[in-house]
Amino acid sequence: MANVFAFAETRNGELRKIGLEAVTAARKIADETGGKVDAFIAGAPGVGAHAEQLAKYGADTVIVVEHAGLEKYNPEALAATVAERIRGGAYRIAIFPTSALGSDLAPRVAAKLGVGLVTDVTAVNLDGDAVIVQHPVNIGKVMATVKMTSQPALIGIRPNMFTPVENPRAGAVERAEPVGDPSASRVVVKEVKLGSSAKLDLGEAPVIVSGGRGLKGPENFKLLEDLAAAFGNAAIGATRVVTDEGWRPHSDQIGQTGRLVSPQLYVAVGISGAIQHLAGMRTSRTIVAINKDKEAPIFKIADYGIVGDLFEIVPVLTAAVKEAKSRG
């Protein structure tokens, strides 16, 4: 019987989707062996309201820690509290999100408990006393199967790998106090800025929409700006030709002599794919190319290509992305 601990991440009092993913993953493992899932949720007073939601996705028990000092991420107080709960709970596995918060929290907890941790996990299985996880290494070019023998084993799950599935349980709420005084933490989050009001930096943007000579002139970059706005989290890039021509500022240049980027999604519009450009973006996770010349080298490295007139395709794509975003 494997009991599983699931850390349900919140931000601003809201439960994050990755929190439901953690519970879903935990439920699946627990069900294999008839174990129990304890979800853990912490935050400012009122955060316990999400217990119901966690129960709906499979938490047998929801441990709720409410404290004004936990309104923002409070790494030291949270690590101490979580470690304490796990220590007292006889869990086989404790699941954390591999998020900015989870990646900070999980190692602290692991060190406090003296147990093993693997983050960015894409699959979890039990094997006798051991836990077997899949974990990409070497920037995702190699997949490692990792065996964990500590009790419990701490796991950080990769976002979007464990699609939340409803699986209602009782979800008994167990209220608990933070360990120590949350207001005495040495590391203090002073401020959180959300939303991309500021222009996203090319190095950090998860999506980059990039334009080349095919755009024909600076005025047509409006098309790309619209597409980037539809993605919401996109920055605009350009090829060397474009910045040389002065259509876009030099700081927008992607390539060997500009910025070297590897976003989740790279949309190359009207870019033929000169070596100097490819050297700067070919490690992007997914590459989409739109170009009228089907012989263009960019299609050789693109995951998905559309051959055709960008002036016709991009507006349609913008509308489709907008729609997909509003649905999902």
Binding site: M143, T149, G308, E312
Partner: peptide, 29 residues
């Protein structure tokens, strides 16, 4: 308490898939 038991290469992603021509290919994309 943590060790790698196996390493594998993930399947190579299919290179350069042109999914279509013109705006009609957008929904599939």
């Amino acid at each position: 308490s943590v060790s790698v038991t196996k390493m594998e290469l993930p399947p190579e992603r299919p290179a350069g898939r042109i999914i279509g021509e013109g705006a009609s290919a957008v929904p599939e994309l």
